[in-house]
Design a protein around this nucleic acid. Structure first.
Lengths: 211, 211
DNA sequence: TAAGTGAATTAATAATCATTCATTAGAAGC
DNA sequence: GCTTCTAATGAATGATTATTAATTCACTTA
């Protein structure tokens, strides 16, 4: 039963490794069932390792959420940077990014909602999540405003539609989390695109010509 | 420091009282921070009271979620039963119910998302939440199908729009939970109605005649 | 009013877990 | 090879907390 002692690694490497293990463990046990022993075992390291590299469990959780938020932000920002100038294409890119495998996978969704669930009682979590939302909302309002053109730019209606599209993502993610059998990433994406086509038939024409 | 002994009450009354206390405590401390001592104190009763009436903490949590789901279900079902036969009115009723004070208040939202967050690792929670979603989705598909009429009834497009509207609620609720300062119940409701007007201009005409 | 019923209390128990720190040992420099 | 530095270990600690069960007592009823 003696463990093989792990070879040395830089703190950077260990921190990343422990965050990955934490993501897996939250998916498996939720935040309420998470123990440092489980995280350490998942990483193949000894009991005290988390306290060594993160000082406390609380800190590990914050850093894990931050990592998830950074990963999301860079995925979406990169996708948008790679898109062309056409507003319809840019909007489609934003929606598609939210349902890409890098973002919409069982583990990430489980962890996002685990933190959402704790957010009411933990201001720090709420702050990190809100920073993500704010960046997201700004992008979405810009793109929807560009799409609908000058007169409406910045109108309450543009704002409401952009906010609705952002909210739609969270709701469809929740479907994927709660009913993964019925709600695949693809179905969620197609549902969002169907809404886009219904909202903006001029910009997102329906493939089959029905009416 | 001696406690005043509580007067006798029926198990029914105590169970309800303890569930109410649990809702408050989850809002305050999250599920991960919830202790039976806190629940008992919130109810003004002694330590062992939860185990007496619910057998275990786990059972208390399940019953609390069930209570929340039942309350939601009866609120929405009652609202729909009171609405007239016009599909547009019925759709407006469904949306309005999701943002009524009985449903969309800080405590209920906090508790819903607390359970969503644990759902991945707790099949029982997932089952209870899914039952609520299924009833909701059925109603929404029926109403949207009625609104769009014969040809589209039951089409993939109707299904996608109904699913989107259901998802929209969850997303807007999340906004209310994470940013209660910016996202009042009323703003969330108006955002949803603005989407309805944009999607179905024929059925939900814009008040001011702008085009 | 005197049992009797069972709701409520509370102190004790046992288990879980985050955190600490003395010790071990891998890697780098000489 | 020897020394030094510091990552890694894991047993020990102490705090927290769900659960139990013996006891108390509020209310009912005969």
């Amino acid at each position: 039963m003696t463990r093989q002692r792990a070879s040395r690694a830089t703190p950077e490497v260990r921190r990343r490794q422990l965050i990955d293990a934490t993501l897996k463990c939250i998916e498996r046990s939720g935040i309420s069932g998470l123990t440092l022993a489980e995280v350490a075992a998942e990483a193949g390291l000894a009991q005290g390792i988390v306290n060594l590299h993160f000082r406390s469990k609380d800190n590990l959780l914050k850093e894990t959420l931050r990592h998830l938020a950074d990963e999301y932000e860079s995925t979406v920002a990169d996708a948008l940077a790679a898109a062309g100038p056409d507003p319809a294409e840019r909007l489609a890119t934003l929606v598609a990014a939210d349902f890409s495998p890098a973002v919409c996978n069982a583990r990430s969704l489980a962890v996002w909602f685990a933190f959402y669930g704790e957010a009411k009682s933990r201001p720090t979590y709420r702050r990190i999540c809100r920073a993500r939302d704010a960046a997201n909302d700004r992008r979405m309002r810009q793109v929807v405003g560009d799409l609908l053109g000058g007169a409406e730019q910045g109108s309450l209606r543009v704002r409401a539609i952009a906010d609705s599209l952002a909210a739609l993502t969270d709701g469809l993610w929740l479907n994927c989390l709660m009913s993964p059998g019925e709600w695949s990433r693809r179905r969620a994406r197609e549902t969002a695109f169907t809404l886009l086509r219904s909202l903006f038939p001029r910009f997102f024409p329906t493939t089959e010509s029905t009416t």
